[in-house]
Simulated assay, not measured.
Amino acid sequence: MAAPMGRGLLWAVSAHCARHLFSRIAHHSAVVPSLVNMRISNRHYAVKTRKKSKNDTQKKTLESEPKQKKKHNRPPLPSEPTDDVYLTWCYQRQVYEAEVALDMLKKFQQLDFTSPNQHVYANITLDMAMDKKKTVEQFVGTLLLPYRYTDGTHKVLLFTENAEEAALAKEHGAALVGGTELIKPILDGEIQADFYVAVPPMVSKLSALRSTLKKKFPKTKDGSLSYDIPQMLSFFKVCHEYAVEDENSIQSQIATLDMPNDQIVANLDALIKDTCKYKPLSYGPFVTSLIMRSSTSEGLYVQFERFLPEGAVKEKVKVEEMEEKDSDSDDEEEKIREAK
């Protein structure tokens, strides 16, 4: 009696559990992939790679090329404001003649009650490019301004071992004169000068100072290496020095604000013409923009084309014509490619 009762209980439990058991199997069979129906490759050789077609390379080049931004046809900004108070970014940048800009700077000085003999600065931006890979090296220039704006003189040191040359240098105002005995004090920083000049026989003996003096090392290119001692000293005692900074800009004092306009313009003209000597005219104009300001005023953009050396404007026109021809030829080549 007990055996049939036990069998009945087992049958009831198995029948009840089968529902949950088979429902779980059916639930997981949809997730777990069946390995029975998977095809296994029987190949014992490598698959040949497909050759790249021209269409694939063209697609890659098109994807790699940056997308050109859509040009928005915006109306040009008005040239001159109609009111005394206006937003500068709503109008075209004002570019003045040099004389007009100087009159405005002097008016700013009167309105601001600042010093009338403050310095006038010329901020010049240069185009240092020559060829595709060649550029003009940063340089330090010196020149004699037509009108001096300071009474001070520079401290000039002359290298020579000749007693007669040393005496001649002292007569013409050299601050220091000596030979190789000055090398160690200069390296130690005990002796400093504004300019260093020398006679040619001393160059080979001063090689230890090249890394210290750098661009101030005596050389024939800037006139600091010569036998003409009086001429060197008279030039470097009163010369005006300027340098290229931040890769392509010159910020130089040219006058004081209380000087007449014609004298300030003459100094500006001399500075720009001397700067243009460092780049051949065949590469186009060297100067790209000019700003004049005083020590306490804002900068004013000035028209600089009149100060460029003769031939620079003509070369600029030639360069622009060559660029237009190149662009036209490129457009023709693109049309031919599209037609093909």
Rank of each mutant, 00 (worst) to 15 (best):
Thr49Lys: 13
Arg74Ile: 13
Ala12Lys: 12
Ile183Gln: 01
Leu225Ser: 04
Phe113Thr: 13
Leu281Asp: 08
Val177Tyr: 07
Gly178Thr: 05
Asp274Leu: 05
Glu241Ala: 08
Ser289Ala: 12
Ser115Gly: 07
Lys340Leu: 14
Pro201Trp: 05
Leu300Met: 10
Lys214Glu: 11
Gly6Arg: 12
Pro285Lys: 03
Asp228Glu: 11
Cys17Arg: 13
Gly284Asn: 01
Leu213Phe: 10
Ser329Ala: 15
Phe159Thr: 06
Lys59Met: 10
Ala208Lys: 12
Ile124Gly: 08
Met322Arg: 11
Ala30Asp: 11
Ala98Thr: 06
Ser327Glu: 13
Gln303Tyr: 07
Phe304Thr: 00
Asn261Ala: 06
Lys325Leu: 06
Glu333Asp: 13
Gly152Glu: 13
Glu80Ile: 14
Asp83Lys: 12
Phe307Asn: 01
His154Ile: 01
Leu233Asp: 02
Lys221Asp: 14
Arg337Glu: 15
Gln68Arg: 12
Ala129Gln: 12
Thr88Leu: 13
Gly6Pro: 06
Asp103Ile: 09
Leu157Asp: 00
Thr180Glu: 14
Val120Arg: 00
Gln68Trp: 08
Glu321Trp: 01
Lys107Leu: 15
Ala312Phe: 03
Leu168Ala: 09
Glu298Ile: 12
Leu225Asn: 02
Arg93Ile: 14
Val32Ile: 15
Leu111Thr: 11
Val197Asp: 04
Glu247Ile: 15
Glu63Tyr: 08
Val177Arg: 02
Val13Met: 14
Met232Lys: 00
Gln303Thr: 09
Val203Gln: 08
Pro146Lys: 05
Leu158Pro: 07
Arg148Ile: 00
Arg148Gly: 06
Thr49Gly: 08
Ala198Gln: 01
Thr275Asn: 08
Ser224Leu: 02
Lys325Gly: 05
Ala166His: 01
Ile40Trp: 12
Ala175Val: 03
Arg293Trp: 02
His16Pro: 06
His44Phe: 13
Gln138Asn: 15
Pro309Gln: 01
Ala26Phe: 10
Tyr91Ser: 07
Gly179Glu: 07
Tyr91Gln: 06
Met128Thr: 15
Val31Trp: 12
Tyr91Cys: 07
Ser295Cys: 04
Thr57His: 08
Thr153Lys: 15
Phe195Ser: 02
Glu334Gly: 02
Ser64His: 09
Thr142Asn: 14
Ala26Ser: 14
Ala15Ile: 09
Lys60Gly: 04
Lys71His: 12
Ser204Met: 11
Leu176Cys: 06
Ile186Cys: 09
Arg74His: 10
Lys51Arg: 12
Glu161Asn: 12
Lys205Met: 11
Gln251Arg: 14
Glu323Phe: 05
